[in-house]
Design a protein around this nucleic acid. Structure first.
Lengths: 342, 342
DNA sequence: TAAGTTTTCTCAAACGTTTGCGCAATCTTA
DNA sequence: TAAGATTGCGCAAACGTTTGAGAAAACTTA
């Protein structure tokens, strides 16, 4: 039933030559004669020879595989990312070893170990929300396995990363709303622990001050990104002395919850109150009541750049031994108006 | 800078014992004395020993890795699936090698080769829409690499698969609409080439005849699943002598396009015309004008069962050599009413 | 204390491939 | 035709681990 795969040894035996000759012949090594090469290749084809990668990986100490650790594959942002990563890796003849941390620090550490043991050539990581310490990544450096972080990056020094700067997009968003005549703008932000929250808030403040409006801290509220949390944030904002006529929300989910709540309170979306959000969900296009605009974060672009960076690092590593600089690729977020669909 | 990882050999040398003893000690082999075992384990820990998996893979001819080939990771159905697959594999200590075919038959074949060369222990596949021949899968059987197909399964014999039967759900859907008083029900189906289209149509017909209504073929229209195609299908249906008051659509995207078109034509959704669809998009919950009900296909459940089946096959293989039966796991689709969200 | 048991460990092969080095055969050139 | 250059190939080690078979050491028992 289950035939054993052909090996180089067998080919050598049949042809009565050495395995090294077979190996070299198959790799078009110059020191092998034309005829032998042809004979070897022919027989290899006939016997359906397939090089045993596990042997090669072992021999070369290289697996042509990159590890990818993402928080949640079911989140649209990350599923778009993994799609792009796979694509980019495939184009450069690399394979993807995939794992998700479910935003669990302990699991993330285990996965890093596992990836190391699998001898991946490099690692692509978007860190878990709950990861506080980063030694598990440090340990990879010792083994010379490069890591590139993307989107969710740890706040430590000397790392390679690709990330999206939320400030620009936020500034654009606020400017856009101001231009539309809004003067009282609220921000439903994420948890304070997130870098992304910080960037959004800073963009918010910057836009205000640039427009000579004073920043009103009561119009900014943090939220845990759940529906309940969003409702509470909305209640807070709508009870405010200065009731916002426009609200910037941390992401599309928050926007959806907020819009739902606003409609429940009989507010007309786009008239009584208008929303701008950060793009996570492609389906926003199909919604009837949706944010007027979204700050695009380019998940696939980020993922692509991150993969390319990682693969560059991998090939550099084998070329030279010197320590290269740290790549810091910043993609600017960008406001896009959401088109009406009816 | 880059230290070489510790090996079993080094441990052996330091302790002046043989590598086999070290290996066995680390594996708690009974024939190793308590003290030696303790000594070995201590030193291993101190030296930060990590077994070189590539060597083990090579040695054992097993990689504890499963290959997964999906058509499109950016499609919600498949991203939910890969999330569940990774989860299930992780729980049984397997790792996932990921690739997407982009519905391209040639690429699919290349990927199967690549997976074979990587010596995956098994393969999980949802086939490309455009795949017509299946020898590339046959070739894996020779090497005793089990394959489990899921959701999109080839129409050939002697394979393991997990799939969702669309007929039941479709019958339920039609019954549901009939019960709501509809008598003229349309079906915007997918391309005739797809098994899924066939099942939907058969369910459609079966439900009609069970309710002693004669099946009207003019109310069924095939479509290529694009927006343009959907618009054409809608035009056709709305021009029909018997104008449907309810429409079953092939998937949520088609439903969205159809609803958009219907509203453009000033039809009131839920009154003039009602929709039932097949669930792909979690976001349907957030929509204002949406199908009243969806036929749930349980992507994560399918993926989970498929992974478990594959891993069972893999462990069986090493246990016994006999050829086992072919697993055919059918999950019944199920109608779920979509709750109102305002 | 010698023989038999049991415990603990070692030897060496094997997995399939790559590659540095050396050697033989062939070809070149004066 | 002898010396050197070139071409074509083989030898053997190496990568790190597992494992069957056997050897040595320790412990029993009569």
């Amino acid at each position: 039933m289950s035939e054993k795969p052909t090996t180089i040894k067998e080919i050598a035996q049949i042809l009565k030559i050495s395995t090294s000759t077979v190996s070299r012949a198959l790799h078009d090594h110059p020191s092998i004669g034309k005829e032998t090469r042809a004979k070897v290749k022919k027989l290899a084809k006939d016997l359906n020879y397939e090089p045993n990668q596990t042997a090669i990986f072992f021999q070369k100490g290289k697996t042509y595989t990159i590890g990818v650790i993402l928080p949640e594959l079911s989140e649209v942002f990350f599923s778009s990312a993994i799609s792009a990563i796979e694509e980019a890796a495939y184009n450069r003849n690399y394979t993807v070893l995939l794992a998700q941390s479910h935003d669990n620090e302990i699991k993330e550490k285990q996965l890093v170990e596992k990836m190391k043991n699998h001898r991946v050539d490099g690692l692509l990581v978007s860190i878990s929300k709950n990861t506080k310490s980063f030694e598990h990544f440090e340990s990879l450096k010792k083994y010379n396995i490069p890591i590139v972080f993307f989107d969710r990056i740890p706040q430590i020094q000397n790392i390679h990363y690709v990330a999206c700067n939320m400030e620009t997009g936020t500034v654009e968003a606020v400017n856009y709303l101001l231009k539309k005549g809004h003067r009282t703008i609220g921000l439903i932000n994420g948890p304070t622990t997130l870098l992304a929250s910080k960037e959004r808030k800073e963009g918010f403040i910057k836009a205000m001050s640039k427009n000579r409006l004073k920043f009103d801290p009561t119009l900014v509220v943090n939220c845990d990104l759940t529906e309940q949390g969003t409702v509470e944030a909305m209640e807070y904002l709508l009870k405010n002395k200065r009731k916002p006529t426009a609200i910037v929300t941390f992401n599309d989910y928050v926007a959806l919850y907020a819009i739902k709540y606003a409609r429940l309170k009989k507010l007309e979306i786009g008239k009584d109150v208008e929303f701008v959000s950060y793009a996570n969900l492609p389906l926003i296009d199909y919604m009837d009541y949706k944010p007027v605009a979204s700050v695009e974060q380019f998940p696939t672009l980020q993922a692509q750049k991150a993969t390319d960076t990682l693969l560059d690092l991998i090939s550099q590593r084998s070329d030279s031994q010197e320590i290269q600089a740290f790549y810091k690729v910043i993609i600017e977020s960008q406001l896009v108006e959401n088109t009406k669909n009816n």
